[in-house]
Nucleic acid binder design. Structure first.
Length: 505
RNA sequence: GGCGAUAUCGUCUAAGGGUUAGGACGUAGCCCUCUCAAGGCUAAAAUCCGGGUUCGAAUCCCGGUAUCGCUGCCA
């Protein structure tokens, strides 16, 4: 393939999103690959905002992209640079191309060759209009021979693509491919000026190349949708007297139906996964394995190992389907396997968000009036975590552990309070627990089983009924661990409360 | 339509001429068990089709098909 991994000295990569939307999972994956590559080679990661289309860009979206990257843990060493602030650089480069005969002034009307009505990416019309059979666009503009079609109009600058011959591109993941120059149109470098401007903003092809040269980018790692653009860019590098970087195109991420991932496939905005309560490291691990493999059988790969193992050679050439169930599996794995001190801050944030957090649970804080402190918090989270799927479950599913205001699930009552002996048993248990000399797992265990036996029922019946009584749910951690963590007072109180609740019903 | 690329279980992928084609998610069953998870075990499940090359092809070559991308004064 390529000796890209040998050229590790001075690796410089960039992630270059366009603020026309939120941070898409595809973009996030591209950002992650760039970041892993940079960190792997102790190189430099650059963030560049490609906002040269005033019509479509929304500056307020930049913050969302940055938030998404930060959540993902992808940081950068240089930037963010904004292309909208670098206009002069592009104009100078375009003029240089005109001067050295590689570009020309084009006076054609701006919409002369437009392929049709381009709707927003996620709207239905998009894929239908410009498909096959559409209007044939130009490859060679007549203006290149100095024959302006509309003299007097403001010109754009177009690249003068060589007639005949081929342009070869080398890609670290796709290998070599060759494009016939006659298939490459005379693409626009610089938009025509509006008002009293001589020229407008740069087009994509010019902007990337000028910036990648200026920022000394060594490896261009980006989505495979740019493969077809690459020959144009190679031509531009040559015209500007520069050496092309190593290109590494990464396969696209598709939806479950194997079509391009879009909103109708569900969440595509990275920030939605944060909002849903996925752990960033789990998301990162999942994303890293979409289109890349370390070669072996490992799947649970911590970030530092991701960095150590990442290489362009391991990048696949086939598009990958975004498989949400697997993402969820990664999340539960991380929820269970993370060091407890790494998980605690995430849970703290979640409880703060839902208003259940108490300051005495913070590290180093004095215990609250009920004796609960940071150690209690850690024990409780540890007890809860095997059953948690997403962070918000701590606030909803596990609410009874953090608050005395909780509801008992009607279905759970229906299932485990059916037996007419339940109220009497719960009352007896409350009494027995109240008299316990010690409050620990085994003491609770013995007391509970004794009450069940005395009442002539199987222990399981009482245990399940008690679970519903003290946490309100059919599903919770093992009962006696739950009792210990809740504390005697709460357990006894909730048991009597349950007896009353049954009586009322 | 043209050009480019890709094709291994439903999904993510390993195997870069010789393996019973491996692992993971999901699915099904069993074990564990106070619920539900987790965990353990087991099962079903793939080399797009057709030609070559070769003693031998998932792997190399050609054709077909399918899919994806590009084909904008979008990025």
């Amino acid at each position: 393939m390529n000796d890209s991994t040998n050229k590790t000295a001075g690796v410089r990569v960039r992630f270059a999103p366009s603020p026309t939307g939120y941070l898409h999972v595809g973009g996030a994956r591209t950002a992650l690959f760039n970041w892993l590559f940079a960190r792997r080679h102790r190189g430099v990661m650059i963030l560049r905002i490609e906002d040269t289309d005033a019509e479509r860009n929304k500056p307020e979206l930049v913050q969302g992209i940055i938030d998404g990257l930060k959540w993902l843990g992808v940081d950068w060493d240089e930037g963010p640079f904004y292309q909208s602030q670098r206009t002069e650089l592009y104009r100078a480069a375009a003029k240089k191309c005109v001067a050295n005969g590689n570009a020309f002034l084009c006076y054609c009307p701006a919409d002369k060759y437009a392929g049709g009505d381009y709707a927003e990416p996620d709207q239905p019309g998009r894929d239908e209009e410009p498909k096959g059979g559409g209007p044939r666009r130009l490859t060679r503009c007549t203006c290149r021979d100095g024959k302006p079609s509309t003299p007097g109009a403001k010109p754009a600058i177009r690249f003068k693509v060589p007639i005949g011959g081929t342009t070869k591109i080398t890609d670290a993941v796709f290998g070599e491919s060759e494009f016939s120059n006659d298939e490459i149109e005379d693409f626009v470098l610089l938009r025509s000026g509006k008002g009293d401007e001589e020229f407008g903003q740069s087009m994509y092809q010019l902007g990337v190349v000028v910036d990648d040269i200026d920022m000394r980018v060594t490896h261009v790692i980006r989505g495979a949708d740019h493969i077809s653009n690459t020959p144009k860019q190679v031509l531009l590098y040559l015209a500007l007297g520069a050496t092309p970087p190593v290109f590494a195109h990464v396969p696209l991420i598709l939806g479950a139906d194997k079509s391009r991932l879009s909103k109708r496939h569900g969440a595509t905005d990275v920030n939605m996964y944060r909002a849903e309560g996925f752990l960033p490291e789990a998301f990162r691990n999942f994303l890293a394995l979409l289109g890349w493999s370390p070669g072996g059988d490992e799947e649970f790969i911590r970030t530092k190992d991701l960095i150590a193992k990442f290489s362009l050679e391991g990048v696949s050439r086939t598009n990958a389907v975004f498989d949400r169930p697997k993402l969820e599996w990664f999340n539960t794995q991380y929820l269970q396997r993370l060091a407890i001190e790494d998980l605690l801050p995430e849970v703290e944030n979640e409880l703060k968000r839902s208003g259940l957090w108490k300051p005495e649970w913070a590290a180093g804080a004095a215990p609250g009036p009920d004796g609960r402190d940071h150690a209690w918090f850690a024990r409780t989270v540890d007890l809860l975590r095997p059953r948690i799927r997403l962070l918000p479950d701590f606030s909803t599913w596990a609410r009874a552990f953090f608050s005395d205001e909780f509801m008992r699930d009607p279905a759970a009552k229906e299932k485990f309070w059916k037996d007419p002996k339940v109220p009497e048993l719960l009352a007896k248990l409350a009494e027995a627990l109240g008299n316990l000399k010690e409050w620990n797992h085994d003491a609770c265990d013995h007391a509970t089983r004794a009450v069940a036996e005395a009442g002539g029922v199987k222990a399981g019946l009482l245990i399940n009924a008690t679970r519903v009584a003290i946490v309100g749910q059919a599903v919770a951690p093992p009962l006696f661990d739950t009792m210990v963590v809740l504390g005697r007072q709460r357990v006894v109180r909730r048991l009597y409360d349950a007896v009353a609740a049954v009586a009322k019903a």
